[in-house]
Design a protein around this nucleic acid. Structure first.
Lengths: 222, 222, 222, 222
DNA sequence: TATGAATGAGTCTTCATTCAT
DNA sequence: CATGAATGAAGACTCATTCAT
């Protein structure tokens, strides 16, 4: 289990003041995502981090403190990437949108961050402060970002005004579905990341109706 | 809280033995949705059902049995409605799709069933049998249903072939987002059901690009 | 251990809603007196009361609640006795004083109440509310009572004015000493209750000086 | 807090190795007196002494060793003073007694030693060796000392024979009461040291009865 | 020698489950 | 059948003690 071990068979104590909290947080995040707050045993978190239960209490006052620290740490890495190229993007809004959607799939859906979604959904009721934090730090910024993209698209005549444009959030709904699918039904019916991404982009770009079926007058009224 | 009450203020010992399990199941579903499996106390479930903790064990062997019973009971009412009109629908696929989306919003997003989604997401890892059950009973049928609609639309020239059509699941992704939003961020930033529904339909019908920006050759390659 | 037992060797569960709290309180008082608040294990309290640890929590929210309940229960039985005959006592103040001292020795020093003294002394710092309660309920009343006796004695010319009469508390100091001695050094150097009582009365009545040595002028100045 | 301090705000690593154990002992005594043996945290003792928890183990094998060392250290300074003048005292036994009582109040009741009393009372049951030590080192010597004084008084016709003279311990009972009062009820009802001392001396010298009420025949029979 | 991170045994507390009434 | 007191197995948390630095 350890690369270093003593003759007594028990791994030697390690002193890693700086590294510990981060290791514990990561271990905690994984356990919390798997079992929820109430269902997670600190013993398991400790084992996963390679320490003993009591050690956790050197760094966190209690289970909740660890939980909050874990969830908070993972805030906003996705957004920071996207925010970077949003304003200076030289190409079409179409391409920008595609880039954003791809980034979201790569950074959120297909990464460990996915578990954050589960935690927020599962524990939001018990930790309102958590959802608030998340809304303020991540979601609201993400919404603003999407709104800027849509505005830009409309201004440039690349994006159509309408109900969807008025709630740009829905533009990433398929990514949310992909993340959830991966955590739930994927083992029973696997869907590849590529298929999800392609369907996502296709839907967002064109919808599914053929040109003939489009009834703009009705739709616009929605 | 009860339609019947005595002068003593305490509800009378109820004699509707048949109703008991259903009451417990409903109470259980609500608590499980709120606090998750591990976080739910049977004491609370019992109180919510107006009985005493021990009574639960008359009807369910243990906590897990209640949990599974609760989750199972709520399966598939949405689908049964939809399945009804799917094959005989006389109108356009466009209108059928609209009808389906509206039904999903009404029956799933804006009803108590929404909590099921939370349970599946939160507890899926711990109860693989649950997700399996759900996949078999509901999701796979829903997928099949959507596929039939899409096939019909393609056959009638009303739905465009493409990546989205190949993964019809994404057509209801905005509804999933709406349900989750309602359970998490709605208290911080409320979004009306109507807006979500309108954006959903709009997106699914047309996507957000203007006609000029559509580059079919590229999209089709996805 | 139990007069009733099952074939399985484990004592049957007993349902004693009314008796339980009192049994737990008594058991708690004994353990707390022996080991202090921090040093007492609820496991031991439970065993002493013939139940299991968890049962305590049906009646008390936590260890502290049990502790406070235990200490509070034992308030003031001594005083109620004494207060009874104080005002109507027909004899001399000398005899009344003797009666009071004897009662205190019998009811406080030579009874289980002695342990209360230990608890108050040992835990007073940690539970200021406790000493306050005790002062209000018992000590202040005891002081008032002694003061009334002394006043009566002075009025009747039976008790001498002076520093001791101005602080009647000291009249029972030897009883306090006896109680403490019993709990500490008695095992190393036993002193009989009778000897303590006799010395107490003798001291309070006459002091130890002979008539010749009394220097009233000096003493009165104190 | 420290007479020496550095610019960094943290006290300099002290080099007075000899003083360390004494500082720890004093810190320990204070904490033990406040919270009892079980209730005392070595962390607090260490902080009070300005060191770190682990440092304690350089000087004491474990918590109990520190406790015993702390309690032992404070033994007998009172007695040594008194023993000094006891045999050579030139004045009356009355004055000698007064001197002794005043010394006890000054050295025991009104000094830090008072806390020792609390420790003995609180922890005596758990540390029989402690009470034994105390009895042997202090109490028995104190008793012997008081007995010598009384004998001297009787021999010189200054002290009256009787029950109190046969248990000279009671002559300092009021001092014990004063010490305990200071630690418990003083915050609720303060009594000055002077009042306690005066009442003590007055009681020991004369008792509280007037000459008329003295019934020597009865008292002597006690 | 002093530090303070890490350990692990011990205790409080919770709660699913059982069972006498 | 229903009740709710009692049980006992966890699990959170504390803290005396150890040990690498």
């Amino acid at each position: 289990m350890d690369e270093v071990s003593t003759a007594s068979g028990r791994p030697p104590r390690r002193r890693r003041k700086e590294a510990r909290p981060a290791e514990l947080i990561r271990a905690g995040l994984e356990e919390f995502a798997l079992h929820g707050f109430a269902g997670t045993r600190l013993e398991d978190v400790a084992r996963r981090a390679g320490v003993v239960k009591g050690t956790i209490y050197r760094y966190f006052t209690d289970k909740e403190a660890l939980f909050l620290a874990a969830v908070r740490l993972e805030v906003a890495p996705v957004l920071s990437q996207i925010t970077g190229f949003i304003d200076t993007y030289p190409g079409t809004t179409r391409d920008l949108l595609k880039l954003i959607i791809e980034t979201v799939h790569r950074q959120l859906v297909n990464s460990d961050l996915r578990v954050l979604i589960r935690i927020i959904i599962a524990e939001g009721e018990r930790f309102p402060a958590l959802t608030e934090l998340y809304y303020a730090e991540t979601i609201s910024k993400g919404r603003a970002l999407l709104e800027r993209v849509v505005e830009r698209g409309i201004a440039r005549g690349e994006i159509r005004e309408g109900a969807a444009a008025r709630l740009p959030l829905v533009l990433i709904a398929p990514a949310l579905m992909a993340a959830i699918w991966r955590m739930t039904f994927d083992r029973h019916a696997s869907i590849s990341s590529e298929d999800f991404l392609a369907a996502h982009i296709d839907l967002v770009f064109h919808g599914v109706l053929t040109g003939d079926e489009r009834d703009w007058s009705v739709t616009r009224a929605l």
